[in-house]
C-alpha cells in the first residue's frame, strides 16, 4: 500500500535535518555498547576461568555419570523395610515438616517489626536504618546448617535445635525481604491517610499494611516449602527430623531405603507446594483485569 509508506518517505526526506537536530540520538552509542559487551563478556570469562580453576573436565563428569547410574540401579525398587520402620520414617517426616513450619512462623513473626524498622520509608533515622540492615545481614550471613550446629550445642540434639536454626537464619532473610517490599509500596495511599488526619501508625496500618501483607504472606509460604527441604539437611547434623535417617541409610548403603525416603520427602514438598500455591492465589487474589 502506498499510503503508509508516505510516513517512511517523509522521514527519509527529512533525514539530514533530523540528523542535524537530534545528533545525540543518531550518534552510535559506542561507549554504551562497549559497556554492555563488557557486562556480558566479563562474567562469561570469569565462568570459564572458574571452571578451569576447579579442574572441571567433561571426562571426569562423564566417568562420574556412570557411577550415578550404578546408584540409580541400586535404588530400585524403593523399599522401607518393616512396617515398624515405615512408622518411624513417617513420624520423622512429620517432625521435619513441623520443624520447617515452626521455624518459618517464628522467624516471620519476629521479622515483621524488624522489616518496618529496616525500611527507609518508614523509619527516617539513617542510623537506625543502617544498624538494622547490618544486623539482618549478619544473621543472614550465617547459613541454616551453621545455626543448627550452634543451637545443638546450646539446647542439645533434637527438633528444638532445628526450629531455632531455621528461625535464626530466616529472621535475616525475612527482615530484608519485608523491608524491601515495604519500600516498594505506592506512597499515595499513605498520603491519603495522613491528609485525612491520621498519624504515623495509621499510615502504616492503612496506607502500607494492605499493600505489603499479601506480598509478605506469599514470601512466608514460599519459605515454608523451601525450609521443608532445608530441614532435611539439618536433620543430618542431628537437629531432628528425617534427615538423620536419610544420612544413616546412605552410610549403611541401604540404597532402596534411601530412594524411598527421598520419594516421601519429594511427596511432602510437592504437597506443601500445591497447598501454598492454592493459599497464595487466594490471598494475593488472581483477579483478571476486566477487558
Amino acid at each position: 500500500m502506498n499510503r503508509p509508506s508516505a510516513i517512511r518517505a517523509e522521514a527519509a526526506a527529512r533525514l539530514p535535518e533530523l540528523r542535524q537536530r537530534h545528533a545525540a540520538q543518531f550518534a552510535a552509542p559506542l561507549g554504551r555498547r562497549l559497556a554492555t559487551g563488557l557486562a556480558i563478556g566479563g562474567p562469561v570469562l570469569l565462568l570459564f576461568f572458574g571452571l578451569w580453576w576447579i579442574d572441571a573436565s567433561p571426562a571426569r563428569l562423564w566417568h562420574g555419570l556412570g557411577q550415578l547410574g550404578t546408584f540409580a540401579a541400586l535404588m530400585v525398587p524403593p523399599d522401607f523395610g518393616t512396617p515398624e520402620r515405615l512408622q518411624i520414617y513417617l513420624h520423622a517426616l512429620a517432625e521435619t515438616v513441623a520443624i520447617a513450619f515452626l521455624g518459618t512462623l517464628t522467624a516471620a513473626i519476629l521479622a515483621f517489626p524488624l522489616g518496618f524498622i529496616a525500611a527507609r520509608t518508614v523509619v527516617g533515622q539513617r542510623v537506625v536504618h543502617f544498624l538494622s540492615r547490618r544486623f539482618l545481614d549478619t544473621i543472614r550471613g550465617v547459613d541454616t546448617l551453621i545455626w543448627a550446629l550452634i543451637w545443638i550445642n546450646v539446647v542439645g540434639l533434637g527438633p528444638f535445635a532445628g526450629v531455632l536454626a531455621i528461625m535464626s537464619s530466616d529472621i535475616g532473610s525475612f527482615g530484608k525481604l519485608f523491608s524491601e517490599a515495604i519500600e516498594a509500596t505506592e506512597r499515595k495511599a499513605g498520603e491519603g491517610v495522613v491528609a485525612a488526619g491520621g498519624g504515623g501508625l495509621h499510615r502504616i496500618r492503612f496506607g502500607l499494611l494492605p499493600q505489603v501483607l499479601p506480598v509478605m504472606l506469599s514470601q512466608v509460604l514460599y519459605y515454608f516449602e523451601s525450609n521443608t527441604r532445608s530441614a532435611t539437611i539439618i536433620g543430618i547434623v542431628g537437629a531432628g527430623g528425617i534427615g538423620l535417617h536419610l544420612a544413616e541409610q546412605i552410610r549403611t548403603l541401604e540404597w532402596q531405603t534411601v530412594s524411598f525416603l527421598i520419594l516421601i520427602i519429594l511427596a511432602a514438598v510437592a504437597l506443601i507446594d500445591v497447598l501454598s500455591t492454592a493459599l497464595r492465589s487466594r490471598i494475593v487474589g488472581n483477579r483478571v483485569a476486566p477487558a
Binding site: A11, L18, A24
Partner: peptide, 22 residues
Amino acid sequence: SDEDKAIALSALEQFDIAAIAA
C-alpha cells in the same frame, strides 16, 4: 537503523515532543 530513528523522530516532531526524546 537510521531510517527507523528518522521515522520515530519525525513523528515526535510532528507532535512537538522531539525535545523530550531522551
